[in-house]
Simulated assay, not measured.
Amino acid sequence: MSSSPSAHDPQVEAAKSCPELTRRIIALGDWFHNINLNGVWTAPDHFLGDFPNVKWKDISKAVPEDLKGASVLDIGCNAGFYSIALKKRGAGRVLGVDVDERYLNQARFAAETLGLKIEFQKCSVYDVDQIPGQFDYVLFLGVFYHLRYPLFALDKIIKKVAGRLFFQSMMRGSMEQRTWNGDYEFWDVKPFQDPDFPCMYFIENSYASDYTNWWIPNRGAVEGILRSSGLQILDQPESETYVCEPRRVQRDGKYLLDLELSGTL
Rank of each mutant, 00 (worst) to 15 (best):
S2M: 13
S2W: 05
S3F: 10
S6K: 15
S17C: 12
T22V: 04
I25L: 02
I26M: 10
L28Q: 08
I35N: 07
I35S: 05
N36F: 08
N36R: 10
L37R: 10
L37G: 08
N38H: 13
T42F: 02
F47G: 01
L48M: 14
K55G: 00
S60I: 14
V72E: 07
L73Q: 05
G76Q: 06
A79L: 03
I84V: 13
A85E: 15
K87Q: 03
D100H: 06
E101M: 12
E101T: 14
L104P: 09
R108P: 00
R108D: 00
T113H: 13
Q121V: 13
S124K: 08
Q130L: 06
G133M: 06
Q134M: 11
F140P: 00
L141F: 14
F152N: 09
F152D: 12
K160C: 07
A162K: 15
A162P: 01
F166L: 07
F166S: 00
S174T: 05
S174G: 05
Y184G: 08
E185P: 04
F186I: 13
V189D: 10
P191N: 07
Y201Q: 06
I203S: 04
N205M: 02
Y207R: 08
Y207P: 00
D210W: 02
Y211R: 08
Y211I: 12
N213I: 03
P217H: 00
N218E: 04
R219H: 11
S228W: 15
T241M: 02
P246F: 05
R248D: 13
Q250S: 06
D258S: 13
